[in-house]
């Protein structure tokens, strides 16, 4: 896998890599993709109508409100929070 592709995938995954890390990942992803490529030799296709046989989606729940988590609990793991999530300024 070339560096350009690794950089593209890293951007999709919102991951910052140094140049050395990009090189190392390019090498390792090449061998990983070689392993993944073995599935190309079998000629089958996906049938969406047969899918989710092992996902037993129960009946949808009733649309009624239920107690939610208190704000302070929701925010307890956020850094720099007062009564809200704090992010860097996004508008000029």
């Amino acid at each position: 896998m070339d560096l350009e592709m690794v950089k593209y995938l890293a951007d999709l995954g919102k991951l910052y890599f140094s140049d050395e890390e990009l090189e190392e990942n390019s090498r390792q992803m090449t061998s990983i993709v070689e392993l993944m490529d073995t599935i190309k030799e079998i000629d089958i296709s996906y049938d969406p109508l047969k899918d989710n046989k092992n996902v037993y989606l129960p009946d949808l729940r009733e649309d009624k409100s239920a107690p939610s988590m208190p704000t302070e609990k929701v925010l307890q793991n956020a850094v720099n929070s007062g009564s809200c999530f704090v992010v860097p300024k996004v508008v000029e």
Partner: peptide
């Protein structure tokens, strides 16, 4: 994360994720 994005990205989806779901 890189491999997952590769399998789902445009141009590769059918060959990897689609084939894996068929398997």
């Amino acid at each position: 994360i890189l491999l997952g994005n590769y399998a789902l990205s445009s141009g590769y989806y059918d060959a990897y994720y689609g084939k894996a779901m068929a398997l």
